[in-house]
Design a protein around this nucleic acid. Structure first.
Length: 601
RNA sequence: GCCGAUGUAGCUCAAUGGUAGAGCAAUCGCCUUGUAAGUGAUAGGUUAUGGGUUCGAUUCCCAUCAUCGGCUCCA
């Protein structure tokens, strides 16, 4: 379950030697698997981001021992320096070669018809049918490959896991067994990659969430329903207060809306027609059906519609931490990243066509500033444009896309255009941030909606005295508080910046006689608004420091005889850095300054 | 939802067809400590839940639930 992407160093991966290497490794693996299971059927085996996979239809499930055996056999094949031999064939010749391979036969049909490559991906031209032979293995394949298997470094490959995958990615098709492997140019690269995986594992928000007592998910409550513990709740509280302040200072109005709404509302919005499978079953009372809200939009629209709007009232910006419930299939739930009840930092903008470009400019720069406040400085964007099937006035689409692109250019943001990738109801910008490990996560979305204004018959009165349809923009900066929290945990590896740290400092008295002084220091710091705890267990100072360190508390304040005498605290950062003994007032000033500046680290 | 794996103390893990143990954490003492683990004792488990096989199940079988790795889908 990958919610993030690694940034590729190679500009054109498909043309790189690494790509060839991985593709070749996939063939070697397929050969090893077929030797072990001669009756096995092969599907496809392409390189992927950090390695490669191959899908098989095999008589029995593979075990970890099988993988070891296959990997060992791969090394033998590599050692044999088997050449990869390219050959172009006709469709009929190909059918003969792969007569026992039904999946390949299906691919050959596709190739012959044209329009798709040997992996079933759409291509412009009708591809040439080609095969690659190496040793005993023949594959329907466009290549390119290495010259021979010996160019694969046997110490730079590793089979990672086996998993189920649907033939051609369609859940109505049979499920195949997919073996994931990784392959690198050198053993050092492999080692580095495995190290990366381990680092990522250490940061896993599910692990840190428990260790730092941030949140839990209880069987008794239900899957995908998050319980925010006091420390996690503090981080959310601080994030939300900041969020509210920023919105109020930037022309938003805060609104609150209920968690359920009548069936008719969801009928009007189209959710019951197009989104029903993700909605919880209705609650019935007094002959009315109510649904838990999967989105906030209809409520904000109803607020808009509660009065007649003039062009003078626009733009209107309604913002809400809106908690929604979506039924997610059991297999997709994942810690905080994918849950069934979550709070979106939602907002809807309503404006006139004339205001629209400026409104987009505003929302983009507002988003960027906001993300930077949380320590995300590397941001890039996706611009998704009109798909073939779309609702709304084409002129409006064009204007909206132009405004989105112009804003991206003004913001000097790197972006990619996903032609036709927009939703049927409007174009959008998605913002991606890069975390401390270089992983990319999609957070913000700024999305036009040409559907709802129509469905809800929204209007404002223009200068001409006539009703006009407003532009509606939906946006979320953090996405959902749950997912954002998960990303934040992993980005900081649990070591939150001072302004977000649930406990900012732990006071560590050396002996019992220092506890009274420690209490006085704590009261002083708390009065200044700092979140401070006193560790008065009868453990040794070293043990208390170790615990505070493990809890990633930003400051440890040691107080002993010397400090007590001089009204000082001995300040240690969680990094291990010693700031030495400081007067309590100096520490207070230092900490408050860091908080105010939202310093990271 | 699908494929595969897993489910034993708060956490990380052992063990067994004859009703379970360790380390850490917790609790209670002793020690009163100078920048990542002082020390002793105590307590803690219907072995996920429900069935079945068996003289006997935590262990074997089935179902359910949950979690993990993927697929599909997504904030």
């Amino acid at each position: 379950m990958i919610f993030w992407r690694r940034i590729k160093m190679v500009e054109k991966y498909e043309e790189s030697r690494l790509y060839q290497l991985r593709h070749s490794a996939a063939h070697v693996m397929a050969q090893a698997v077929l030797e072990k299971f001669p009756e096995g059927k092969v599907a496809i085996g392409p390189p992927v981001e950090d390695g490669f996979y191959y899908d098989f239809d095999l008589p029995r499930p593979l075990t970890p021992e099988d993988l070891e055996e296959i990997e060992a056999r791969m090394r033998e094949i590599i050692k044999a320096n088997e050449p990869f031999i390219y050959e172009e064939v006709s469709a009929d010749q190909a059918r003969e070669i792969f007569e026992d391979q039904p999946y390949k036969l299906e691919l050959i049909d596709g190739l012959e018809e044209g329009g798709v490559d040997e992996h079933g991906n759409p291509v412009d031209e009708k591809p040439v049918i080609s095969i690659y032979k190496s040793d005993t293995f023949v594959d329907l394949c466009r290549g390119p490959h290495l010259e021979h298997t010996g160019q694969i470094n046997p110490k730079a490959i590793k089979l990672m896991s086996v998993a189920g995958a649907y033939w051609r990615g369609d859940e109505h098709n049979p499920m195949l067994q997919r073996i994931y492997g990784t392959a690198w140019l050198s053993p050092q690269d492999l080692k580095q990659y495995l190290q990366f995986l381990e680092d990522a594992k250490k940061r896993d928000h599910r692990k840190l969430g428990r260790e730092l007592d941030l949140y839990s998910i209880s069987d008794a409550v239900g899957s995908g329903l998050v319980l925010w513990h006091p420390k996690g709740a503090m981080i959310r509280y601080l994030s939300e207060r900041f969020w509210e302040d920023e919105h109020l200072q930037n022309g938003y109005d805060l609104v609150y809306t209920p968690h359920i709404g009548k069936a008719d509302l969801w009928k009007t919005s189209g959710h019951l027609d197009f989104y029903a499978e993700n909605m919880y079953s209705p609650i019935e009372i007094e002959n009315q059906q109510y649904f838990l809200k999967p989105m906030n939009c209809p409520f904000h629209i109803e607020i808009y519609k509660s009065d007649i709007r003039s062009y003078r009232d626009l733009p209107l910006r309604y913002a809400e931490m809106g908690t929604v419930y979506r039924y997610e299939r059991s297999g997709v739930l994942h810690g905080l990243m994918r849950v069934r009840g979550f709070t979106q930092d939602d907002a809807h903008h309503f404006c006139t066509p004339g205001q629209m470009p400026e409104e987009i400019d505003f929302v983009l720069s507002f988003s960027l500033n906001f993300l930077r406040s949380f320590g995300f400085n590397e941001i890039s964007a996706y611009l998704s444009t009109r798909p073939e099937k779309a609702v709304g006035d084409p002129e409006r689409w064009q204007a909206a896309e132009a405004a989105l692109e112009a804003s991206l250019k003004r913001a000097e943001l790197p972006y990619e255009v996903d032609q036709g990738g927009g939703a049927f109801y409007g174009p959008k910008i998605d913002l991606k941030i890069k975390d401390a490990l270089g992983r990319e996560w999609q957070l913000s979305t700024i999305q036009f909606d040409f559907n709802n204004p129509e469905r809800f018959d929204m209007s404002y009165i223009e200068e001409d005295g006539q009703p006009h349809q407003p532009y509606m923009v939906h946006r979320a900066l953090l996405g959902s508080m749950e997912r954002f929290f998960g990303i934040l945990i992993e980005h900081y590896a649990g070591a939150f910046p001072l302004w977000l740290a649930p406990v900012q400092a732990v006071i560590i008295p050396i002996a019992d006689r220092h506890v009274d002084f420690a209490r006085a220091v704590m009261a002083d710091l708390k009065a200044a608004g700092l979140r401070v705890k006193l560790d008065q267990r009868s453990d040794r100072m070293n043990a208390k420091i170790r615990d505070a360190e493990k809890q990633k508390v930003p400051f440890m304040l040691v107080v002993g005889d010397r400090e007590m005498e001089n009204s000082q605290v001995d300040v240690r950062r969680r990094s291990g850095e010693r700031l030495g003994a400081l007067p309590v007032a100096d520490f207070k000033a230092l900490a408050l300054k860091d908080v105010a500046e939202k310093l990271v680290g």
